[in-house]
Structures are given as C-alpha cells and as structure tokens.
Amino acid sequence: MRKSKFYAMALVLALLTSMLAACGGNKEASESPSQSASPSAASASPSSAGGGEKKLKTVAMTVMTLDNPYFVAYKESLEEVAKKEGFEAITEGAEFDLAKQQAQIETFIQKKVDLILVNAVDSKGIAGAVKEAADAGIPIIAVDVDADGGVTSTIMSDNKQAGKLAGEYLVKRLNGKGNVVLVNGNPITSVFDRVEGFKEAIKDHPDIKIIEDQNGKLNRDDSYKVFENILASHKEGTIDAVFGVNDPTTIGAYLAAKAANRSDFFFVSVDGSKDAVEFIKKDDMFGETSAQHPKAQVVKAIELAKDLLAGKQVERTVLIPVDSVSKETLSSFTPEF
C-alpha cells in the first residue's frame, strides 16, 4: 500500500510537469533560456527589466467571467490583435470574484507585463489592485466598465446610449403605453448606465410604467428563474414589454416565457450577440438588442497603449458607439460574439 501512495505522488508530479511543459512550452522557448540561468540574481533587483523599451511585448487582461460569450469575445479579439502585432496575450477570467481578480492583477505585475486590461468585477473594490499596477509603472486600462484607483484610461460601450436605443424601440413599439418588466443586473457601472439610458428614453411617456425590477445576475440561468417567478405573479395580459440589461439575461427571460407559453409581450436587450440575433430573425417576440463592439474596444485599447509608450497623452474615457439591431436593421449587422 505504501508503494502505491508513493506511486500516486510521483504521478501528480509527472502530470504537472508534462502539463506545464505542454502549455508553457511554446512561447517559453523564446524567452526563458537566457533568463533562467540566474534566478537568484533576479531577486536582487526585481524592477530593472522593461525600462527603456517602447514596444508592447506582453499584454495581460482579466475579465469578470469567461462564461459569457461577450467576454470571450474580448479574449478572442485580444488574441487576434496580438497575432497581428506580434505580442503575447494572456487572458484570465475572475468568475465574478473580486479577490481572484486582484490576485490576477498582482501576478501580472510580477510578470512585468507591458499593459494590463481590466474588466472590473467591482468598479470600486478593484481600486487597490489598480493602484498597485499604477505604482509599478504599468499602464492599466479599464475595458467595458470603469475602474477606480487611477486607471490610465477607460474604454467602454456607450452604455447609456445602449439603454436609450432599447428604450426608444420599446416606446415606439408600445405606442407610448404599457407595463414594462426590467430584468436588472449586478451593481456595476455599465448596468447602471444602461438602466439610466433606458429610463431616460421612457421618461416622457408617463403611460409606460416599470412594474417589476429584479436582478437576473447577468446570466441566463438566474434570469430564467427570476422571470418564471415574475410570470407567476403577473397574469396574462399584464406585461407588455421586457427590458433585459444584457443578452444572457434577456434570453433567459425569453426562454422562460416560451416555456410558460406566454407571448403577450416582447423583449428588448443590450449586447448584439449571435444568439439574440438568431432569435430576432425567427421570432417577433424578441424585438431589439443594442449591439456592443468588444473588438473595437480592444483595438482601441492597444492603440492607446502604443500612444502611451510613445509618450503621448491619452483620453481618460473613450466611449464606443452601439447600434440598434432589430428586424429592420438585421441585414446590415454581423454579430461579433
């Protein structure tokens, strides 16, 4: 029995070694041989590297989750740009865990990357990690949502416009009158802005009322359950339209309505994902989604980073416009994710 335990230990090590070799190997080959010779010397002066260089070599990004196609689009866009421009791209998902995201940023700092992109789990809570990066002299750019602590720049969708476009479509289709359910999301700036823009669009129409405001936690699963409950408490004919703050939310609610055989209302959304576009194509009930452009955000971020390295000033906030996608505008739109 003792032997088999030793065997198991050996197995762990063998597995780890081979996995590390397999995963880290491809690009390690280009950078580690010259450096690995003196690991102890490196500990003496950890801040010496990367001083006078003016070129992006490594860009690291942490996004709030990688289980939503929208954020996977950030990952893929970054990898695409990296390939074209010849730098190394690292993307990690924080699974909505702020502590995890902070740890990821700290490790990026230790890795001495040239640029950090942060899609903050919590705009305020991430401030500590952002400050650490800034103190280490690494430019840190917020994407999708703003971040406190001294980011160099923030690049995001014009979320207010996104909510507004959804609201305008809804007002038009409702002819200025009806009961609206709001399937809200977690407390982050992008969600606040969308809801604000939406409310702005409907505010001149007193006959449009928000009768429910619930948190679908920005994912399909929770939104499905939340909307099931809303349906149970609002009988047929009492809901006229639904605004979900992103596509996973709206799709979750839409699927719950379908499962309950309810079709007495329609949906508007924000994101412009493939899934939502498919539903818009097939079903009148899925009315509109305000399309975001994650790729344009990443491209812009890299542009800004290059400007920074060249010593230029960059804008503090860059808003990337969104487009309203509905049955009428569908033909001219290709979803990015």
Partner: peptide, 17 residues
C-alpha cells in the same frame, strides 16, 4: 520547476505576493 521555467517566480516581491 517554476523557478527554472520563469525568472520572475523566485523573486522576493513575487514570493511575498
């Protein structure tokens, strides 16, 4: 293993981190 594979691993600041 990590120390051999990455120069940034075995630094005081990374160990503290």
């Amino acid at each position: 293993l990590f120390a051999v594979m990455d120069e940034n691993f075995l630094t005081w600041s990374n160990m503290m981190n």
